[in-house]
Design a protein around this nucleic acid. Sequence first.
DNA 1: TGAATTCATGCAATCGATTGCATTGATCTT
DNA 2: AAGATCAATGCAATCGATTGCATGAATTCA
Lengths: 345, 345
Amino acid sequence: MMDEPRKTPTIQDVARAAQVSAATVSRVLSSPERVTEATRDRVTKAVEETGYTINQAARSLRMQRARTILTAMPGIGNPFYSTILDAVVTTATSRGYGVLVAGRLGDDPARWLSDYYQSNRADGLLLFDGFLETRKLHGITGANAQMPLVAAYDELPDPQINSVITDNLQAAERAVRHLYDLGHRRIGHISGPSRNTFPNERLVGFRKAMFEHRLEVREEWIVPGDYTMDSGLAAGRHFGGLAERPTAVFSANDEMAIGMLSALKTVGITCPRDISVIGFDDIGVAEHYAPPLTTMRQPRERIGRIATETLIGLLESEVRSREPVRVVLQSELVVRESTARLGSG
Amino acid sequence: MMDEPRKTPTIQDVARAAQVSAATVSRVLSSPERVTEATRDRVTKAVEETGYTINQAARSLRMQRARTILTAMPGIGNPFYSTILDAVVTTATSRGYGVLVAGRLGDDPARWLSDYYQSNRADGLLLFDGFLETRKLHGITGANAQMPLVAAYDELPDPQINSVITDNLQAAERAVRHLYDLGHRRIGHISGPSRNTFPNERLVGFRKAMFEHRLEVREEWIVPGDYTMDSGLAAGRHFGGLAERPTAVFSANDEMAIGMLSALKTVGITCPRDISVIGFDDIGVAEHYAPPLTTMRQPRERIGRIATETLIGLLESEVRSREPVRVVLQSELVVRESTARLGSG
DNA sequence: TGAATTCATGCAATCGATTGCATTGATCTT
DNA sequence: AAGATCAATGCAATCGATTGCATGAATTCA
């Protein structure tokens, strides 16, 4: 018996083995109830014997659907997004969908992404990249390429597009209230980047909460960041050099909080003795940082799962409803040791 | 002018617009030199006008190649792997390949993965999961499904399969030597998990280095871990409860080092005053942890890039060489503040 | 029992791109 | 000038699965 490289079996091979037509095999696979039990068994057996696997390329071509979703995120290396991606993959896989990951987007992201759709590689898009301008997005949804799309990122997505988001305003208020409740009155903020026209949502929430608590907002206590540890480091240096420092800081994400603490520590300012810090996201290290970080935990796993389910639901429903889907999730305050009662140090 | 949903243009549409046959359009796209400049221009123009994108499903079906690679990793949420994935996506995209991410593997991972291959969804596999047993892997490479495969993970992969790895033995020795040079003689280790038959490589390197430096290896100073922060935490508690503690610890990865420090801090043991720690990988937070972590930096970006290039090279070479490819990269010692000269605290 | 209905299955067209072979016209050779 | 050579292009088969329609057998009903 030669060990020759026999090709992978096709539906025809199965049909021959089961002594039926290819059409019947196809039916057994997709709508078994339409086939007699006897033939069904014969076919099932033949499938097993031949080791048949459906050829997705052929299937996609014929059905005009790839059973694959595309994901786009600003940086997969970022632990925040990678957790979401994990949930996306798990959910999509269990529903029989593949997950493609888009690389760094070039000059024309909309075109780049919709190419995946036009070329029949992906049926829909999960967009986790808030930096992609809404304006450019219209190239994806509008025009001739109507790629189904669910956006899931921090900042307000265009209300016209389906989205799964967390309530940043409310979360920012909770964060500030937590600091307020601990007695802090001089509160600073490291903000995320603002998009073109809109100010950063967490920054807005911060201002709103400060106003509601009748606290003074000092502009020198609001430092713009870009969600990287390095920008947190810069913010830390800024606060460290100030004559009058806030007693507590709300950072728009954990990385920047960590960067800030790292910078402050080098100039002898320790947390929570000299300054309290609350972060955002609850990334993996937050719990084990020194000190363990108080933070607003985003339900990342849920974001990923729900966004995926929403998209797949969209793909599989015949009627495309006009109303965009909007899911708003809440973040959760996780109190650890980086925030302390004022003066307790 | 109606805004009716015109379908995405096919090669036939382009052919009609350019007044040539579909065959010619195809040739302009794949081997332009075989076509007159005049027709080539006409076709190029027609492609632009129609906004034509090649239908990958049809192409895959005809060519029996999907221009897509599959990646499998134990946990995408893990920052170590997500950085690698980032590099993989960037590299693959620039070479015109898509990247599919496999979900959690079920009972029969080999079967599961090779299904992607048989079903013409992926042309090859990048395997970053060392926990997948080599024995099970043979189902992927052997049998009727000869899926091209490049493995890139810590532990010794089967020498028969292509791999991109780092030299763990050497790295472990460097780590121990660093501690030794700082005057440490009582050195402990938090190890990664051992695979069935083989002991963990970094553990082996640790023992080897200890032997070479003629240092005593105390079994109670070697704590098994599983690369999670929680297992580092447990290790920290273990060390904390010991009557005689090591003065320095080599942790098989950064997360466990962080977990350990976090546990030790709660019992008043601080780093580097009371204990020095060197980690492994140089994940993002290592630099900004308190204290900043000394670590063996793995060239994650290179691992991802080289593995991808190797796999694509394999896919595109006509002849499948019998000799497996093996690339061995070196890790780099990054000295920060978690390691200090003995007695300098 | 014969007509009507139902049901399982097969036939063949189709999805869109690629490519071996055939054809055409131009260029070269002697 | 006639045949040989070559380059550019078209024709048509092919990849493998799905599905509307046709067929024939079995079942139901009068």
